[in-house]
Design a protein around this nucleic acid. Structure first.
Length: 425
RNA sequence: GGAAAGGUGCUAGAGUGGUUGAAUAGGACGGUCUCGAAAACCGUUGAACCCGUCAGGGUUCCGAGAGUUCGAAUCUCUCCCUUUCCGCCA
């Protein structure tokens, strides 16, 4: 959520920040509501103070058997006024919250200002030894490979649930499971994360906490009867572990890693990237989430990206890192790196991970705080998360990059102890 | 799905409609004592918001919301959640 104090104290800065994020300027509306709100609180608090005093007097008078009807009569009108003011105040605060909850986080100063994905900046890339971008080396795309080897069945997935719900078979299913386990184990054993296996459905409060609601409602599957959303990412349940909690400073950083299936309606993107795994309604993802001290969050972001990169190097998958520009940042992020892996068949990069620092944006929405040792005061902490990694597009890169001229798949070495086989043919 | 019980501070757990932000105990923190520690004793121990340069003052919060009342943790209604038992079930 947006910090109202920032708007109050530095409206110009917020105005510019919203413009950089391609967002409508609502600063004046906010300031007006904020001003109204404070005036009303001031007036009402005064009335309430009067009433509290008078009520104490009534108590005293009654105790001693004296008449209190004059005060009672007077307080009746005061109480009516209070009721009226409170209801006005509620309306104002609702209006204010609606705006504040709908505003995206502002970009950090280190983020390049830009309009769209065109303006993202490649910060580095890593290519396996002997790698070439030459398409001729690779004859089949992941859909063709999946069919030929009978490890992926998109048609039957569509029959069961609809298009975009992949079905893995045989060694394909094993490979997917191996990949998930490898990623989880590696983060737990080498990067110091503790493992979470979260619920795959979450309530409205949780969705609001991480920023999916109110804006992304249309992109999520919703179980009407129960008021629950299918999680679009494990970020939601894992970040909400500490919703409405106060952590101790010495606990930080808290680092979690967890697997979840991810469900996305992808409303409005029909026909785009519809082939195979490129855009699906359900995919698997291992997600890292960190709760950190505000002063450390940008350092922690770099470490987070490094944690995801380690896996790609071990898997021997070509990738590049993009620093997203202000206009391409997601709703909640202040800074974000995308990691894209290479698809030789598509001859382009595919997004396999997104690592973001949300600063206090989610913490403010979800009310996640820590108590600072030095001041003894509560403060919002910073949250970060990153995919480490999403399997579907990563699987595209793994299959296509590891195919032999005969159309077999060599299983990456690090996965072989999980799969129990070294080749799919 | 049926039945019952219950939701109070970091935790356990009191609470008669009128100084109850809330007894008491535990925990945590600080101090005394000690070479040090334990024990004992003493003290401290919530948050949000508003006004104020500061000092400080005020308001709200006992699951959530509405109601009764001059005044509600305490009375009424609705909802939510948790626990236990029964049924169904991986």
């Amino acid at each position: 959520m947006f910090d109202i104090k920032l708007v109050r104290e530095n409206p110009g800065f917020v105005r510019q920040g919203l413009a950089n994020k391609n967002e409508r300027d609502r600063v004046d509306e906010i300031l007006k509501l904020d001003e109204d709100r404070r005036q009303l609180i001031l007036a009402t608090d005064e009335l309430k103070a009067r009433r509290n005093n008078a009520s104490a007097q009534v108590g005293q008078l009654k105790k001693t058997g004296q008449d209190a009807s004059a005060i009672i009569a007077e307080m009746k009108t005061v109480s009516d006024q209070i009721t009226e003011n409170d209801s006005k105040l509620r309306n104002i605060e609702e209006a204010l919250d609606t705006i504040l909850l709908s505003l995206p986080n502002l970009a950090h100063e280190s983020v390049p200002v830009g309009k769209s994905a065109e303006d993202n900046v490649e910060s580095r890339r890593w290519l396996p030894e002997g790698f070439t971008f030459d398409k001729e080396e690779y004859t089949l795309d992941h859909v063709q490979l999946g069919k030929k080897l009978d490890i992926l069945d998109f048609e039957r997935g569509a029959k069961i649930a609809g298009s975009g719900f992949p079905l893995y078979k045989g060694k394909g299913a094993t490979l997917e499971r191996a990949l998930i386990n490898f990623m989880l184990d590696y983060h737990i054993q080498h990067h110091g994360y503790s493992e979470i296996f979260p619920p795959f459905l979450a309530n409205k409060e949780s969705m609001r906490g991480t920023g999916q609601l109110p804006k992304m409602a249309e992109d999520m599957y919703f179980a009407q009867e129960d008021g629950l959303y299918l999680v679009p990412t494990a970020e939601v349940p894992i970040t909400n572990i500490h919703r409405d909690e106060m952590l101790a400073e010495k606990q930080l950083p808290v680092k979690y890693v967890g697997y979840s299936a991810c469900f996305r309606r992808e409303a409005g993107s029909y026909g785009k990237d519809s082939k195979g795994f490129l855009r699906v309604h359900q995919f698997n993802k291992v997600e890292m989430v960190k709760f950190v001290l505000p002063e450390n969050s940008y350092n922690e972001l770099e470490l987070l990206v490094g944690d995801a990169e380690d896996l790609l190097k071990l898997l021997n998958v070509p990738y590049r890192i993009l620093l997203l520009c202000s206009g391409d940042l997601s709703f909640s992020a202040a800074k974000c790196y995308d990691i894209e892996t290479w698809s030789p068949a598509e001859q382009r990069w595919l997004e396999s991970s997104s690592c973001s620092n949300f600063e206090a944006f989610q913490a403010r929405r979800a009310n996640i705080r820590f108590r600072r040792e030095e001041t003894k005061k509560p403060e919002f902490l910073h949250t970060l998360n990153g995919s480490g990694l999403a399997t579907s597009r990563l699987m595209v890169s793994i299959l296509e990059n590891n195919q032999t001229p005969e159309g077999k798949i060599i299983v990456p070495k690090v996965l072989q102890r999980y799969t129990g086989f070294g080749i799919i043919e």
